[in-house]
Design a protein around this nucleic acid. Structure first.
Lengths: 344, 344
DNA sequence: CTGTTAGCGCTTTCAA
DNA sequence: TTGAAAGCGCTAACAG
């Protein structure tokens, strides 16, 4: 018969130390103006009884529980993992915990998940790449304080931290153009993805920069198998003259790379391939994948800085946009001699 | 000037519905024996006021917050991601949330993290592959209810769910032996890792099964770069006659694969390579990686089943061990004709 | 500087 | 079946 023992409360500590509950509370919360003798008595009692304050009680009375939630579409995505890590680390230093709410790519559930999470937490880090902007705007109003990640949002009191995908893809195209490529294919991400839209905007800008450049947009996706599945379409594009392919992200590019190898296509001999995000796997593929590096951890830290300001009741800080850095690896190379003219 | 408005409480609902707090509580908790007219009045009031019960208050009075934490050494590891996903899904169905506590591979912090997490949660899923058993034993006693994942533990009231690494590696070796390999190298995981110990046990067993088999254990690691860094040692082993290499996990094997390709070693022509865990990347590498598949999501679901039983005050259920399934891919092949005799 | 006391919002006896 | 009232454990006014 296991007797469920009553947990030690502040009352027990007070009695043991021979002081009032209030004094115990003050000592434990590091309030000023407490007599050292009382403090030491309290500490002794705490140690002796193995007392640990009830977080539930504290939450109730303070109206906050020192926990924030990060809502992400897919925890397997290295980008979100990195942001999460950076966020967690930074929050930890301020005594905050981070709860992860994975919406599992069910775009429809993002709203419900975020609302649910907000009930248990003091604030939200929201990553909802597919949510239509009007909905998002309504949502953030309901769950504030909130920081939006990885997409721009013009809403009062809601800072966001993101990546300049347009600029990044432009830089990547510049790299390819410098290698001599003039016909490029792009394996697009999910149609409703905001960051895919930004990439396509970057492609358009690159086309203006390079008048002799042509870009063909192919349906892709966001995961390994999407990239593999697109291999045939990519080869057709190559037959139409394309000499390089950009993937929506590294996963897509890696999936494609795999399938191309199976089909005996030489990369970059026959075709150059590049990704985006610089996932840890990029440098370990065969051939290593040229990609755009994003400071994932740094992003997370900046998110926390903004969120903590908000939680403390401060004014929302400025928005922040990181410019990705080009990582040239072996998957991109000069235009093959055989190319340059259409093959079709 | 923003007026922080007072949240709607159960008192407001009671007043609005013209009933007592107790009735509101009963309706909202689905207690039996409530007059339908009262119920509808309450629901109407709730809807009208947009009332949401305070989880903090509920936690305080009930002594539980319907949240559990999973302590993992590294969230980037696909194995833990999968388990987490399965766990989250299953817990969700029972109205429980899962909080993630990443110890970031700092083995020393596992204990502190687990204790901290336990304070905020009703139970713990513990994955501490490096913790010495005596410490672990003490720890689980302090944080019960708890389920241990991915390592065996013989402690009263603490169920565990794991993978039969010994059996798995044995099966993998059988596959290689069937292909004709007789000299195998193994890139070991972290020395203190329990699951590495089990793999080595499996290797020993395999050696008994196949008397003409010899196994060489090389220092490896648990990550991509560990595998890449071990390439030279692997080649030396090959010069001593090894025709196949097993990685501690897929990450190590993939890192190795990458480096071997750089060095111009043909896999599996010159050397067969296999991993463990069957991460999503395994099938997309070049060549695709032979690996042992582990039912990650299923593992997570079983963890929840045991944990929920415990939380409900039930007796701890039986321990569970999954046997990995062999996934043969192109990275393993017959012994090269040139091999068979030592080259040294 | 310290103690007393009133809640925080909810669930749950206990009577009615 | 319903309501009144007593806490859950803690913090924060308010006195002293």
């Amino acid at each position: 018969m296991v007797e469920r023992q009553r947990p030690v409360t502040i009352v027990d500590v007070a009695r043991q130390a021979g002081v009032s509950q209030a004094s115990v509370s003050r000592v434990l919360n590091g309030k000023p103006n407490v007599d050292p003798s009382i403090a030491s008595a309290v500490h002794a009692a705490v140690a002796e009884l193995g007392y640990e304050p009830s977080l539930a009680a504290r939450s109730l009375v303070q109206g906050r529980n020192h926990t924030v939630a990060m809502v992400v579409p897919d925890l397997e995505n290295p980008l979100f993992q990195g942001i999460l890590k950076g966020l967690t680390l930074a929050a930890d230093a301020d005594g905050y915990r981070v709860l992860v709410a994975d919406t599992d790519e069910r775009a429809g559930s993002e709203e419900a998940v975020a609302l649910e999470a907000r009930r248990r937490c003091d604030a939200i880090v929201l990553c909802a790449p597919r949510m239509p902007e009007p909905r998002l705007r309504q949502l953030v109003a309901r769950i504030a304080p909130v920081v939006v990640v990885n997409r721009p949002l013009d809403a009062a009191g809601v800072p966001w931290v993101g990546v300049d995908y347009a600029r990044g893809i432009h830089d990547l195209v510049d790299h390819l153009v410098a290698l001599g490529h003039r016909r490029i294919a792009y394996l697009a991400g999910p149609a409703s993805s905001v960051s895919n839209g930004e990439r396509e905007r970057g492609l358009a800008a690159a086309r203006e920069t390079h008048p002799d450049l042509s870009v063909e947009i192919l349906p892709g996706g966001s995961r390994l198998d999407d990239g593999a599945a697109a291999a045939d379409a990519v080869l057709e594009a190559r037959d139409r003259g394309a000499t390089a392919v950009l993937g929506f992200n590294d996963l897509v590019a890696l999936g494609l790379l795999h399938r191309l190898a199976e089909l005996g296509v030489d990369v970059p001999g026959d075709l150059s391939v590049a990704g985006f995000d610089d996932s840890p796997f990029a440098r370990y593929s065969t051939p290593p994948l040229t990609s755009m590096s994003v400071p994932r951890g740094e992003l997370g830290a900046q998110v926390w800085q903004r969120l903590s300001t908000l939680v403390a009741g401060g004014r929302s800080e400025h928005t922040l946009l990181y410019r990705p850095r080009l990582e040239v690896r072996a998957s991109t190379g000069p235009v093959p001699a055989s190319a340059g003219a259409d093959r079709a």
